[in-house]
Amino acid sequence: MIIKDKVFEIYPDNISAEQIAHTKHVNSLTPEGLAVAAMKDVDPDFLKKLGNGKIMIGGSNFGCNSSREWAPSALMYAGVELLIAQSFSRIFFRNAINIGLPILESPEINEYVSVGDELEVDLSTGEIKNITTGKKTQGTILPAFLLKIMTSGGLLETLDAER
């Protein structure tokens, strides 16, 4: 699966799952209800910035603490097409894959991208090409079974297809 789009923002380390979709901003668990809550405490302009590109960059320990699947869901419903972070916290990582939000871990990503750069990312090889600068870097390749879950829409979609 290849994703080609622009980086709309780069976020710092330790952004927690609850900051990504805080209880106080979520008034309905519908896609719209979750989308409007996305990143509100961290970046009130988040939804506006998504108009400039669909690739989001996070720091280390992205999505830490809470187990709420609301977090990756909010990002996905808000329109994020790819999330690259230096590292993900454990539960967020599983949740993103299980709902089919494309994510990629790349410890050195910050040295290779700036806001506004256009990237071409191949999820199956983990290769990240910065079209704007011509630089290339590598993300961690997912085990095949996880890649399949993530790129076929999520865990339940996989289960559905298996039956």
């Binding site: 187990s67 699947e69 599983r94 949740n95 709902i99 865990l155």
Partner: peptide, 26 residues
């Protein structure tokens, strides 16, 4: 459990961990 503090039950010598909603359906 679908709650990150499911890890509390380690106090009883159990392995316990938090996961997400979709995974819990599975």
């Amino acid at each position: 459990g679908t709650d990150s503090h499911t890890c509390t039950y380690g106090a009883f010598g159990a392995f316990s961990t938090g996961i997400g909603s979709t995974e819990m359906a599975w």
